[in-house]
Simulated scan of single mutants.
Amino acid sequence: MASRYQIANALERYGLNPNQASCASEFLRGHLSTRQVDRLARAADDYRSDRPLNFGDLVRVAASVRDTDTFIQVGAAAVACKVVADMPLPI
């Protein structure tokens, strides 16, 4: 399993604020393997954006790795961290 520090550092590097990164890492620790976190990090590296990632971007990145569990866990982290209300709905 990936450590919460590994997850939090990666999330902050991609633009989440420290509080969001800490909350998400606490939730995702034990839910994602190191391999899943690595795949998510690689996908975030490839994500094209002119601004830091937000949680909505992170959910889109998680969907792009084509691993249902990663997508579900990142979405659940958004709910658990109470940032889902800040995410735009797809139209």
Rank of each mutant, 00 (worst) to 15 (best):
M1H: 08
M1Q: 07
A2I: 05
A2F: 03
A2S: 14
S3Q: 07
S3N: 08
S3F: 04
S3M: 02
R4A: 01
R4S: 09
Y5G: 01
Y5F: 04
Y5E: 08
Y5R: 10
Q6Y: 03
Q6I: 00
N9M: 08
N9P: 00
N9V: 12
A10Q: 03
A10F: 07
A10D: 04
A10E: 02
A10R: 05
L11P: 00
E12V: 11
E12W: 03
R13D: 11
Y14A: 06
Y14G: 02
Y14W: 14
G15V: 06
L16P: 10
L16W: 10
N17S: 11
N17E: 11
N17R: 13
N19L: 09
N19C: 01
N19I: 09
Q20C: 04
Q20H: 09
A21L: 05
A21R: 09
S22P: 01
S22G: 04
C23S: 04
C23R: 00
A24M: 12
S25H: 03
E26V: 13
F27Q: 02
L28W: 01
L28K: 08
L28P: 00
R29E: 07
R29I: 00
R29P: 00
R29C: 00
G30R: 08
H31T: 02
H31Y: 04
L32I: 08
S33H: 07
Q36F: 03
Q36R: 13
D38V: 08
D38T: 08
L40I: 11
A41C: 06
R42P: 01
A43C: 07
A44L: 11
D45Q: 14
D46I: 01
R48Y: 09
R48K: 15
S49A: 15
S49I: 10
S49C: 13
D50K: 12
D50E: 15
D50M: 11
R51P: 10
P52W: 11
L53E: 02
N54I: 10
N54H: 09
F55N: 01
G56F: 04
G56D: 03
D57V: 04
D57L: 06
L58M: 14
L58F: 10
L58K: 02
V59Q: 09
V59A: 15
R60P: 01
R60W: 08
R60G: 01
V61H: 10
A62K: 05
A62Q: 11
A63C: 10
V65I: 10
V65R: 02
V65E: 00
R66V: 00
R66F: 06
D67N: 15
T68R: 12
T68I: 11
D69N: 14
D69S: 14
D69T: 13
T70C: 06
F71D: 03
I72K: 14
I72P: 01
V74T: 05
A76L: 12
A76T: 06
A76C: 04
A76V: 06
A77F: 08
A77G: 07
V79C: 02
V79Q: 08
A80I: 03
A80P: 01
K82G: 05
K82N: 13
V83Q: 12
V83I: 10
V83P: 06
V84S: 09
V84Y: 13
V84C: 06
A85R: 15
D86N: 15
M87K: 03
M87V: 15
M87R: 08
P88L: 15
P88M: 10
P90R: 03
